[in-house]
């Protein structure tokens, strides 16, 4: 099979590669670009550990070919913090003990970021439904929900007072 050229913008930076058409997007990110924050957990699109944003929509990168993403804007966990400043979701997960082994965490944060971008003030049920495609084996989800609630409040506050100093990094 002929290799195909793929050009994507990953976390704001244009990245290119010649790939086999069957290469999974997650392997493009991890093995070709070295962005290993995106994880593979289940291979059948059930666990969400591989969640990234493709053109602003959360996607399971183990269930998408790299060539499908050609030309797309991709955001991964590595693109969430702004230098030393954590994204409010990252801060929320840390503050609220929303992670233990950390393996599902990048996917969980990316899915939460998508959720909050569409629904800045979700109820607990909406949060739980919003992360229903992301499995966590360690936390029992309690503190993940709290982390997302903390981030949501912080993002809403930042939205309400955009000029305040110390504004956290904007959500996606």
């Amino acid at each position: 099979m002929t290799r195909q050229h793929v050009s994507v913008t990953v976390n704001g930076e244009v990245r290119e590669a010649d790939v086999e058409p069957r290469l999974l997007l997650v392997h493009l990110l991890r093995d070709v670009f070295g962005l290993t924050g995106t994880h593979v957990g289940c291979d059948t699109s059930n666990c969400g550990a591989c969640t990234v944003h493709v053109n602003g929509m959360s996607a399971k990168s183990c269930t998408m070919l790299a060539v499908q993403a050609d030309g797309a804007e991709i955001r991964t966990i590595e693109g969430m913090a702004s230098g030393a400043t954590l994204h409010p979701l990252q801060q929320g997960f840390w503050d609220q003990h929303g992670l233990q082994c950390g393996f599902c965490t990048p996917g969980m944060i990316m899915q939460s970021a998508w959720l909050l971008a569409r629904n800045p003030d979700p109820s607990e049920d909406e949060i739980r439904d919003g992360i229903s495609g992301n499995l966590c084996r360690c936390t029992g989800y309690v503190n993940i929900v709290k982390a997302i609630q903390q981030a949501a409040a912080e993002l809403r506050a930042a939205e309400a007072a955009p000029d305040a100093s110390g504004t956290p990094a904007a959500a996606s």
Partner: peptide, 17 residues
């Protein structure tokens, strides 16, 4: 707060894969 978390929440954990 956990000392190990900063690397995990940034996607900088180092798992076997």
């Amino acid at each position: 707060k956990r000392k190990e978390d900063p690397r995990f929440i940034r996607g900088q954990g180092e798992y076997i894969e």
